[in-house]
Write a protein that binds this DNA or RNA. Structure first.
Lengths: 221, 221, 221, 221
DNA sequence: GGGTAACCGAGACGGTACGTCTAGTCTTTAA
DNA sequence: TTAAAGACTAGACGTACCGTCTCGGTTACCC
């Protein structure tokens, strides 16, 4: 699925549809096939690359992976990687989120509960090694405008939008403080997690994951 | 002052005393001189290096600086840099903070005001190009345990300690919520700023700087 | 002895009197003391340096020794070495020959026997690890006019002179071929040994040492 | 020709076929092409490197060339040099011998004449700047087992074999002394030239070149 | 079913920067 | 003074990757 999508628009963000929140990715299959001439993208290579990245991440940190080493490990030419991913950040994010499922939001619940649910989902994404890997990706992206945009759009944007929407609803419903600056609240809530991971802890510990959403909820009330 | 301190203890964190919050650095002058044998550290070279970094940061981002280029620009051997700074992070942090003044805290004020004061000071540090530079340093440090520790100790630690102390005082005085988790509050407050800078904005805009402290204050009340 | 001589004329070839053929080095002790002002040369350091070189030569080849490493091993400043030896070649030659004795020539014997005696002495000097070390010195000296001169004068010159004299005597006495080119003969005879050592063998084997002088003798007859 | 050979067997002694005595290099063209995968070696780069070395040798001595400088002069990446030559010795030898022609031996002549011819050819190789350059290569190779082997095999071996063969033939034919030790004779004859060059003279002078072969011939008779 | 277009692997290419090493000089204090 | 210590400029070393390129070959479509 992801591969077909990529094949039709190579070199653009291949991540949006991987993260899972992309709501309209079903439309794509309805599009005119527009089968391009030439040899189609090798699904085998794609999997080999993703697998290589995931296997390598077990032993080394994300910043220690080199495109060269990934290519060798995957038994693949470097060009094949460069053809399909614009940078290491995109590749690793796709690998890490390869099996991230898309869970629909409980839109019918009150804002408070939705906020808790949203944060729990976010924290679950950053559980275990994933947290450090994604923080490293966000960090690496800091020195590269393109990569930063690609990281933000494919990973953070949807979370930010969801959270902002929930906060607005809460404010309108009188459940949250009305003098709250939504943007700053989003920064603080996600920033708290990001900063915690950047400050040295290799993983989010369970007590943090459990208590953080409630602490965030108190912030907005 | 900073140079003298460095000369007596090379290769240890040369940054702690640069940031300015180091309260006991006056003791050092009372220590026995203990002039070491051999040629003393060249103050001229040290300044040339710091200046070169600062001049170069005007044109390129921190991650685009190479030790090699700094050495050439400063007219200095690479070894001289490696002798005194363990990594690029430490060097650039020292350069960026070279003229950071040490301002004593207003310990007599109520907790709320102190929190505002503390955050304003923090935000002032991250004003202009400094913000992006320091975020880049924090990011680069993510892929290097040593650099991360060095960054944290020399830059964030003192801020975290100060803020935590203020929050505790506020909680004890009944000015802040007593059910507040101090650690998480610190993460959120500083994390909000860090995340804001990492999300794309090249600089902190004035309205953010002005409003953020009050938003943070509301978080703890 | 060598140290006293060196102290009076630092930076000149400190080797001539070490090799042993220097016949008039006894006169030096009769010279007026002429105590120079300032701190006298440290005999302790000199010995430490020589010992360090000899100890290090047991583990690594001559070309792997660096002035820096020698200074560190000897617990001595680099300048102390540079002050007393013009280059690594001189230093190592002195270390290797530190206990080389000066044996008087048997001037009364016929030319053939003197030639054998002279060559046996030369080969004995190059026995064991010494051979490779001296060849390495000769090799290193190739890329440095000064070092080459210093090596030649302190090591080869006296051997060449002795051999040339013997050949001339032999020619005059009718014992050797009169159409022999003395210079070329010297080149061939010493060159044969040098080339043999340069061609790969780590040491001169005993059979070579035993047979070479006779082979050389046949060359000149 | 040399380049084609190199392309099919990279990283092995690239010198053997350059010196010119390699008798069976014609077979290579009969081999199945067996085109290797990947981008083929750039003949342009190879030539640029060889030319750069030769141009630089006009101004400085072989030991003053650095791989770095050669790469820069040739407009080539350092890795390209390291990819094809194991060390500086091999590279410079190939450069120096790049236009060394392969002259067939006059096998039908008597041993004495063949010895003269062989030596004249050898001396002609060492004429002019080549002599010093090759001596420097031989010297540099002394501190490196690999380089020594590579130098010996690519440069000296064939000469030694030819000379030894000639001497054996001469001994069997009764033209040379039968009590002659062939190995030692070879050492002396080539060693005489090598030692002469190592003893200081920058070039072989014409009179040496003219007279040396006859002197060597007398040695074996 | 023959073109042809896009893919694939392999691997060489010009580069940049790394962190280490050594050379030889310079600048201190101690003896 | 000189010794000893050790910082200094300078620059080569060999390695690792970068992102690009150039091969010979492989699919699948489309005509």
């Amino acid at each position: 699925m992801s591969s077909a999508a990529n094949a039709t628009k190579p070199r653009t963000s291949a991540l949006a549809d991987v993260i899972g929140e992309n709501k309209n990715n079903t439309q794509r299959t309805e599009q005119k096939p527009a089968k391009k001439a030439g040899r189609p993208r090798s699904e085998k290579s794609r999997k080999a690359i993703i697998n290589a990245v995931n296997r390598m991440l077990l032993h080394r940190s994300a910043s220690e992976l080199s495109i060269e080493a990934i290519a060798k490990k995957a038994g693949v030419g470097k060009t094949t990687i460069y053809r399909w991913w614009p940078d290491k950040v995109s590749l690793i994010l796709e690998a890490v989120n390869a099996n991230g499922a898309n869970v629909p939001q409980p839109t019918h619940k009150p804002a408070g509960e939705r906020l808790l649910w949203q944060l729990e989902r976010f924290l679950r994404l950053l559980r275990g090694r994933n947290g450090k890997v994604i923080i490293e990706m966000m960090s690496q992206a800091q020195s590269n405008k393109d990569a930063l945009g690609s990281f933000y759009e494919s990973f953070m944007l949807i979370h930010e939008e969801n959270l902002a929407e929930i906060i607005e609803i809460g404010k309108n419903a009188g459940a949250f403080r009305t003098d709250l600056d939504t943007g700053m609240a989003v920064d603080m809530i996600y920033g708290g997690v990001v900063y915690h991971l950047m400050s040295g802890s290799d993983e989010l510990d369970e007590s943090f994951i459990e208590r953080y959403p409630h602490e965030a909820l108190r912030l907005v009330r």
